[in-house]
């Protein structure tokens, strides 16, 4: 009893200090069965880092815990909503996703390869673009907004069935040009604060910037449920927020710049497990 109250006093103290110091080597196992690789060797193409780490390893113990069980993960509520949408017929064709794709589980592995080269379109596509192509061309419905709840929820469902699989984005062949463009954006110092993605997420990960513990800015765990705005956040929405914070004019969700940046950033996480929907602060 005495020990217990002491422990909670310590926990409270740590909370007061801004963040409970989490064990950055703690293993992430979801629902006691899905093993997540949160630290691994950096992929060959990465020049300045030897180890890559999931954003989960930088979060407080309280936030980390929320992702370890689907009943605690607020993002899973939206996955359930997307499961309903998956079964619901829509558009002039009166079809549901399920009519062509059976169970959502048939999408296992898809997220790990995204974004990827689309041969027919002759460009790199993100998951949102593949989804919208079905929504409009195959179902005859109005396209979903990049940040609409329909879209973000559906990307969460499709990510969730790949959890535990290693990110494995292709950067060669026809995707190479887009990847190079994304890399250039990653290292460009935008805005009046003249900060690049690399300044914060490569040079300073693990450091505090004001109250924020900087991670490597990986996207293997998206979409992310943020406790700060209490909703699921898309990858491009996160990019937008980070660029805005440099006092820059941002790019738009779905812009060629953000598609290229997504491919590049995704490739920096090759080897980490798909983790979305994750919980972040």
């Amino acid at each position: 009893m005495k020990l217990k109250s002491l422990t909670s006093a310590v926990a409270l103290l740590a909370l007061g200090a801004g963040m409970a110091v989490a064990d950055e080597n703690a293993p992430l196992v979801i629902n006691g069965e899905i093993e997540i690789v949160t630290r691994t060797k950096a992929p060959e193409h990465m020049e300045n880092m030897s180890e890559i780490r999931s954003g989960w390893t930088f979060r407080s113990e309280e936030t980390q815990k929320l992702q370890m069980d689907d009943f605690d993960n607020p993002g899973m509520i939206f996955v359930d909503q997307a499961r309903e949408a998956w079964e619901t017929a829509m558009g002039t064709e009166g079809k549901a996703c399920a009519d062509c794709h059976n169970e959502p589980e048939s999408m296992a592995g898809v997220r790990a390869k995204m974004p990827k080269w689309n041969e027919a379109a002759g460009e790199v596509w993100t998951m949102e673009m593949f989804i919208n192509s079905c929504v409009t061309n195959r179902m005859g419905a109005e396209k979903w907004g990049w940040n609409s709840s329909e879209m973000v929820n559906m990307t969460a469902l499709i990510s969730s069935v790949s959890r535990g699989m290693p990110m494995d984005v292709a950067i060669d062949g026809p995707a190479a040009e887009t990847w190079e463009k994304g890399k250039e954006i990653y290292y460009t110092r935008y805005g009046q604060l003249e900060l690049s993605c690399a300044n914060c997420h490569e040079d300073n990960y693990d450091n505090l910037i004001r109250a924020d513990h900087l991670s490597q800015g990986q996207i293997n765990a998206f979409p992310a449920y943020r406790l700060k705005n209490a909703k699921l956040n898309s990858i491009h929405n996160r990019f937008k927020g980070c660029i805005r914070d440099t006092r820059a004019e941002t790019f738009k969700e779905g812009s060629p710049e953000f598609i290229a940046l997504e491919l590049y950033v995704a490739s920096r996480g090759n080897g980490l497990s798909v983790e979305g929907p994750s919980v972040r602060n």
Partner: peptide, 10 residues
Amino acid sequence: YIRPGDAFTG
């Protein structure tokens, strides 16, 4: 500056 913004509005 590259893509200077209007303060933190984006």
